[in-house]
Nucleic acid binder design. Structure first.
Lengths: 244, 244
DNA sequence: TCTTTAGATTAGGCACATCTAATTCAGAAA
DNA sequence: TTTCTGAATTAGATGTGCCTAATCTAAAGA
């Protein structure tokens, strides 16, 4: 058959690791609060100039991965969310695997996972997942999305926002500061530890908390830097909220 | 202190994954024979145009990774060899790990390792190596260089070059054709199997070989395509040759 | 309402790794 | 020795993702 008429050029969507990083960061920003990310926040998190973000966001929009009106915040589309969740799944499974199978420390897994998540195949990810028994949470307490993009977020609140008297257990620890993680590990402040807010020191000072249960408890003064990295799940039962 | 005089720009050597691929292929070409690789052979193996190789080789030379006179073959420098062996170590440890720990098949490991070798950290490689008990050979029989770049090559000969009557064991199976690997696995032709060359069919036909030992043997007609992918170590003891 | 200003976008370039097309070279053939 | 030919190199261009500098805009303050 002879070709006739006009030749059409179909734009092939390139899932470069840059694109993967952008959608991952856009997703991560909204995982634990509602506001959408702005251009400059995205730039800071990615370590690039504002102008780079503007340009890249235009490309992401062309590829149908984000919604964006000039001068306003950036939101993932359905397709963008699917890609982001796939990356989050990769990242969190890798972190879990590195700790459990290769003896990595709590504070070491993040950077390595960051490197690997763009390189491994889907087959690799699924093999890892079955070897680990299909875990639901990573070592920092973050939920691992299912292969189909389903994710269930625990009903957690930032420790720094809790009032005195509140009780619960530590359900998530932000993983983007290795030094903080080392400090917490050293203090035996771990995932799933029981925690009670005792009160706040005056003039915006540290938060006083009690960690542990029964007779095995210890009190700590927690500076804002730390309390804004810890999420607490209230002991009183509560409905889960599920995103798809 | 006020800056004065001329500002100097120091060229930072970028170990991009492209550079890693080039040195790896240059090294691999000379691993089992002596001739250095030419520009066009390199282009074929990397799947790029000749011109791309010319340009890239100039850059590799600038970085002190290769020796090269225009219009002649390309050789690795000391530094280039060190980098190449580091990549080879990565690749072969990854292949071994994927098979032993993640249930990958003989024919599946190559491509995955190709992706991972540029992404993993040295820490990851060394953790894998200890988990595996510091193996000396990968699943295809290729020797794994030590972290310091030492590698000991077995005294192996290409099956297609052996005369009738020669006996030995299969010590290496070229890993760059997954289909061939599947065929061999299906025929139970495996690493370390005993092999005897029975003769050659006339007019440049297949090689006739006997695989196995004692009473458990089987005869095969091996086409050139296959016999040039199998390496045999003579049963008669022989000195090892060691490269550094 | 007008002005200011911080944040976002466009303009113009650069580095990297690739391509096609044109050119040059080394070694074999005449 | 000269000619030819295939391999190697250079020239010029592309796409991606980044930068700085210049410009624009939306929303807050006067």
């Amino acid at each position: 058959m002879k070709p006739h008429g006009k030749v059409e050029f179909v734009k092939v969507v390139t899932k470069s690791s840059t694109v993967e990083d952008y959608v991952k960061v856009i997703y991560a920003f909204t995982e634990w609060q509602d506001k959408a990310i702005t251009s400059s926040q995205l730039a800071v998190r990615l370590g690039v100039a504002n102008s780079s973000v503007s340009e890249m966001v235009r490309k992401l929009k062309e590829q149908g991965l984000v919604h964006h009106q000039p001068y306003s915040a950036i939101k993932l589309t359905e397709r963008g969310t699917v890609l982001a969740l796939a990356m989050v799944r990769r990242h969190r499974l890798l972190e879990t695997y590195l700790m459990r199978e290769l003896g990595y420390g709590w504070d070491e897994v993040h950077d390595e996972a960051e490197l690997l998540e763009h390189a491994v195949s889907d087959k690799f990810i699924e093999r890892m997942s079955s070897k680990l028994g299909h875990p639901q949470r990573d070592p920092h307490g973050d939920p691992i999305p299912a292969p189909d993009g389903t994710i269930s977020l625990p009903d957690a609140t930032l420790l720094s926002l809790l009032d005195a008297g509140h009780r619960g257990k530590i359900t998530r620890i932000s993983d983007d500061n290795p030094e903080l993680l080392r400090y917490l590990a050293h203090q035996d402040i771990t995932l799933d530890a029981d925690i009670e807010v005792l009160g706040q020191r005056p003039f915006g000072g540290s938060l006083m908390v009690r960690i542990g249960s029964g007779t095995d408890t210890a009190d700590f003064d927690v500076p804002e830097e730390v309390s804004s990295a810890l999420w607490v799940e209230s002991t009183h039962p509560h409905a889960d909220c599920t995103l798809t």
